[in-house]
Design a protein around this nucleic acid. Structure first.
Lengths: 335, 335
DNA sequence: ATGAAAGCGCTAACAT
DNA sequence: ATGTTAGCGCTTTCAT
């Protein structure tokens, strides 16, 4: 294996000079730089990141720990993170926890061992000890998408309460009263907050008696099952709100299954769009859209600022806007 | 930061003894092991993977370099790789090249620097110098999904020629003659092979004069544009074959755009299914399905065997079966 | 069953 | 503008 010493000999300089060339640090004469670059190229030298990291205590690596890498919402986020990180010379390690605390813990161990410089975490649940684990090791962490109450930590997310509130308001405006929300896991802030926003809108409209929220998980299967349950209840809803894209698709399937047409027979709205490349039909769902790519960019920027000490001491909470896109799936209540 | 030396002092042993405990290597008395584990727990010690890798020359890390991480086909592959790797104590670094040779080169540099133990590569093109780059550095590489001619290297893929052949045979059996294939990039084996399989079936049927293959890229946009072109040609096809899932969706959109119903007005088949969670409609496309998850498992197994020297010296080519799933989208030719 | 010494490849700190 | 020295945290090698 070619090392920095081999390059140094080949170029007739000291190893530290080679180091300065490959790091663009310190003063190097044009002439010396040329000789070193020549030697690097001749020998096919590739710096050893392990040695660099061990010595310098920086790996130029971030980690993005997500709960579901198959969800296009997170894929878009990942692109945003990657774009910003790579522009600053950082690489990104992607980890998928599948909403499991134990998987999250497993990755926390690995990432701590690998000495990544910073971590972007979508916590699997609010009780997660992962943040404290990293903070104890002095590894900067930033939360993404979901908040954890009672912990001082940088967070980039959207206002799920407001998003759900607006979505339900829209339904109320269409005359709906029996509105059912199908949400994600209890103990996950986005699932809880969207239920809170729903509750707020319903209460304001004096419709407490019609309130119906099901908690499950952010998957199609869960959405399907809970929608089935709601549909077979004594007083089935005239409108559904899905707390994320997969749940909403699950609800859609349940509706199809019951031969209910959207929006002719029943109304359906949800959180998070699906990207165009995956649609065969024209997009027709009325949705609350979170700016996933921008969330990824923003969270990476925030973390990178932290790393170079450019961020203010107190922790920041960045709330990005949710946009309601009204399409065909939301119709007036049928009588 | 807590190091192995701190743990050693705390436990009253030598650092090497701590090393043996955390690596489960060599002989350790139960009593010593207990004291060391106790010390590790008390101090919250996390081993430094950089130091370990630097010294031991193994990082227990694989890389999976893909061309499009947003494609569910690759997401499934990634799961297969992850499952096998993690079972063997390896972690996986995921890289997305977006079909770009220069991105591929960029990641090659990073991965070589990080000293990953082995690499699974979906080459962006057949002329890629990436394989030689890694081989020169003695880093094991295995190709996935796409082959590179004239290079001796382990490969796990499906038989695209046979898959396309079967798909076209099916169309011929339905009475179609004017069959158009929309394929991916020239110079990518899957794009070329699927065109070859098409050609073979058409030739066998004596339909050379009807042959029409468009090369573009494996994206929805490309599929859309090329399908538009084909539809506005003097002699438009009665059936389309999309060379991957995104292309097929693009074709579908072009058909919608022309108010053509599938399969009543025109037939559409393609490669690679879309996973159920993303479907709102019941799946209705007739497709040639590659066993993505198994491909991922298989390629990871092959690479891990290479790493421990369990694989035979000569390189292996594993060809997994393609399954044709016939659904509603393929109908008889309209007269 | 345990330990001592050395060194992996690099860069921080301090010269010159 | 370039070099010397030392050491990051660990495991290999060789002892005992």
């Amino acid at each position: 294996m070619t090392t920095i010493n081999d390059v140094a000999k080949q170029a007739g300089v000291a190893p530290i000079t080679v180091s300065r060339v490959i790091n663009n640090s310190g003063y190097i004469s044009q002439e010396t730089r040329g000789r070193v670059e020549q030697a690097i190229s001749v020998l096919g030298y590739v710096p050893n990141a392990l040695a660099r990291g061990l010595r310098s205590k920086r790996t130029n690596t971030l980690a993005l720990v997500m709960t579901d890498i198959t969800n296009p919402f997170f894929t878009s986020i990942a692109r945003g993170v990657e774009d910003v990180a790579s522009e600053s010379g950082f690489s990104v390690i992607y980890c998928n926890t599948d909403e499991s605390e134990s998987e999250e813990y497993k990755y926390a161990q690995i990432l701590a061992q690998k000495k990544v410089d910073g971590i972007i975490l979508v916590p699997a649940c609010s009780q997660s000890k992962t943040v404290e684990f990293f903070q104890a090791l002095d590894i900067p962490v930033v939360l993404l998408d979901r908040r954890i109450p009672e912990v001082q930590i940088d967070t980039v997310r959207c206002d799920s309460i407001a998003g759900a509130y607006k979505l339900v308001k829209l339904l109320l405006g269409l005359g709906h009263k029996r509105i059912t929300m199908i949400s994600g896991q209890r103990g996950v802030s986005t699932a809880e907050d969207r239920a809170i926003g729903y509750h707020r809108a319903m209460t304001e409209a004096g419709l407490e008696e019609y309130e119906q929220v099901y908690f499950g998980s952010f998957t199609q299967d869960s959405g399907y099952e809970l929608a089935q349950k709601a549909l077979t209840s004594p007083d089935p809803p005239t409108a559904f709100v899905g707390a994320n894209n997969f749940i909403t698709i699950g609800i859609m399937k349940a509706l199809r299954n019951q031969k209910l047409r959207v929006p002719e027979d029943i109304t359906l709205v949800g959180f998070d769009d699906l990207p165009l490349p995956l649609f065969i039909d024209e997009p027709f769902l009325t949705v609350a859209v979170q700016p996933a790519y921008e969330m990824g960019k923003k969270v990476a920027e925030l973390l990178l600022h932290r790393l170079v000490g450019k961020a203010p001491d107190e922790c920041q909470e960045v709330i990005l806007p949710i946009e309601i896109i009204q399409r065909k799936s939301s119709g007036p209540v049928k009588v």
